[in-house]
Write a protein that binds this DNA or RNA. Structure first.
Lengths: 374, 374
DNA sequence: TTGTATGCGTTATCAG
DNA sequence: CTGATAACGCATACAA
């Protein structure tokens, strides 16, 4: 199945040139002296609008800073402010392409605003998450953008009490009113995916969602139920499973559902972290997609057009979400942004590919609103 | 092809409960007063081995800290040290699964050692990279782990001159001796992949690698050439392309190579960032894999077993690389780790799946070493 | 417009 | 074992 490459030993140490010694960095005082001014003046040219500085003086100071390769020390500046100007990004893990994309864009947007991002991963573990939140109490960051596990409501509150702003992305915590959040319209997205399947003749539709304590888990279930109810289909509990994000519970649930006495003809995989595992299991089970089972997955990824069949998916506007999140957070850190909490919801998009088949069912309700493929 | 979900407007603001006011955090002085001791004592219990403290005194102080929810302020601590104890992680982008995995593991390993990691992405842009490196001169971090673009050798040096340690991962910079690095054995891995194809009867083998100024680009080409030369095959320049990491140059190059008068029967995609695009293009061109063209890709990803056919790939031990990188960096930041630079090279692994066909070529050299599938 | 002095929270150096 | 006190590098009232 696999073979090692490049020899037997897996590690090799190689000794090379010697490291050189560090030099002593210039301080604001050095600059002041070299420029023949006081530290206050230097400080003022550093923070542009903080006070009057004669044009030529500024020029001179700037030159000296350049020549001395002076860089203001962040630790010293932060000591005066209430908190640092960095933000923490707390995500479950980076192996999930959705989270990786979100992180990528958030880092990008943050850089554009001059703020550093310290990255932390919870691995979906509430205990680990709690530790991370506690470590953030050192005020090294001025705010946090997070995809929360769903637990630790008290610790999230504690952060805010300590003056550290919080913005939830993708998921949020229901019991925690008063925290800004950015996400897709989960209810509507799930409802639309369900309706899409209904429109194509499917009547028994399965749903694999995230844990019920996450908003993505509960709301997507809500949307699914709503769409089903709208056409008078009773919710069959056997067709739905809340599965954890990690582990193979998703695959197991998929296997269980397709082996039901009266199996579904379509399946919505609303647990982003589980689509890989579920698809692999379905394949192993010999379930043909879409002939035996139509499939729609959350969320979209580049490889989905390469698999057989190409996957129909719900794509989330990660760029937009990242932008809103960082924008809100920075606004809060700078004191602007009003006192009311902001809840931004953006639309997801259904990407039609080949994993959904049309069922030749008796009578497809002809009274459905016309939101089919364009 | 796609449809919006959840209504027309894409954004929706929702006003909710009011944010509450931040409280003033306790300082070491507050703790000292409340515990009836001096700040020195509190400082000592904070940094465990820094001085003698009576057992019961410690107990009392600890209790007060707990009760006051005291958290030492990082900015203040850092002001004394030479640099902060965080590290920066500089990667091209997180949409590349390899880099995302690396980042995930590095963050994990870092947390285990109590160090924060600030994430930065270069988007493969040398100018952007330079800006980032300059911003690091504020000594907010004590070290950097990076996948360098290949340029900015001077700026990397500058960092070290300012006392900030650097460890390269995956790629390194040839001209920069004296910087620690961790990577796979690129030459050997590429040679092994090439040999694997040779063993299966392929004689015209194409290679799509990264830019020549990156070590992954140059060394993989070296390994490929070496393997070819070892069996007396002349290197045909038409079969090899250095392509940038971003953009569709990879797809274009693939298209060009397969439409050659005498096209290759196998292709090694050694540019990790380009495999998606190249595969999509090949499919669009109607090139059947592996019937028309055998394919081996760097690096492995979970979805590769889902595509048709499942992709044979070279997997990199990201966990191991992450561990070595952070270990070396932390060692340097703590002053341990000798003066000679460390170059760690780990083995990659060939994952055999279905994208390589055996060619019924006249005479497959029977004198090859037996490193076939196990 | 510029300089002086003080504070930010912690660590480290000493003397008790 | 404990407690003053001086850095650490920068920002900022306030005085000149």
């Amino acid at each position: 199945m696999s073979q090692g490459l490049g020899g037997t030993g897996s590690i090799c140490y190689h000794r090379g040139v010697t490291n050189e010694l560090p030099a002593k960095a210039a301080t604001i005082k050095d600059v002041a002296r070299a420029a023949g001014v006081s530290v206050s003046v230097v400080s003022r040219v550093l923070n542009d609008g903080s006070g009057p500085v004669a044009p030529d003086t500024r020029e001179r100071v700037l030159a000296v800073m350049e020549q001395l390769a002076y860089r203001p020390r962040s630790a010293a500046r932060d000591l005066n402010r209430a908190t640092g100007f960095s933000v923490a990004l707390v995500v479950p893990d980076l192996t999930n392409p959705l989270f990786a994309r979100l992180a990528d864009r958030i880092v990008w947007e943050a850089r554009a605003r001059g703020v550093h991002v310290v990255l932390m991963t919870t691995q979906e573990d509430p205990y680990l998450e709690r530790e991370l939140l506690v470590s953030l109490l050192d005020r090294s960051v001025g705010g946090v953008i997070a995809i929360p596990t769903g637990e630790n409501a008290d610790h999230w509150q504690a952060l805010r009490t300590h003056g550290i702003h919080v913005v939830f992305v993708s998921r949020s915590i229901e019991s925690l009113r008063g925290i800004d959040s950015v996400s897709i319209r989960n209810t509507e997205a799930a409802a639309a995916a369900t309706t899409y399947l209904l429109d194509r003749g499917h009547r028994r539709i399965g749903l694999l969602s995230g844990p019920s304590q996450t908003t993505t888990g509960s709301r997507r279930l809500g949307g699914y139920r709503g769409a089903l109810g709208a056409v008078g289909i009773a919710d069959d509990p056997a067709l739905h499973r809340h599965v954890p994000f990690l582990g193979q519970a998703g695959a197991d649930a998929a296997a269980a559902i397709v082996s039901l006495p009266d199996p579904p003809t379509a399946l919505i995989v609303a647990n982003t972290a589980q689509v890989q595992g579920i698809l692999v299991r379905l394949r192993a089970l010999g379930v043909r997609v879409p002939d035996d089972l139509s499939v729609i997955v959350f969320d979209d990824a580049p490889w989905m057009e390469l698999v057989d069949p190409p996957l129909t998916s719900v794509r989330q506007p990660t760029d937009l979400m990242a932008m809103h999140a960082i924008e809100i957070l920075v606004a809060r850190m700078q004191g602007r942004a009003g006192s009311e909490t902001r809840t931004v919801e953006v639309s997801a998009e259904l990407i039609e590919r080949g994993s959904v088949a049309t069922r030749p069912v008796a009578a497809v309700a002809a009274t459905r609103r016309g939101d089919g493929p364009q």
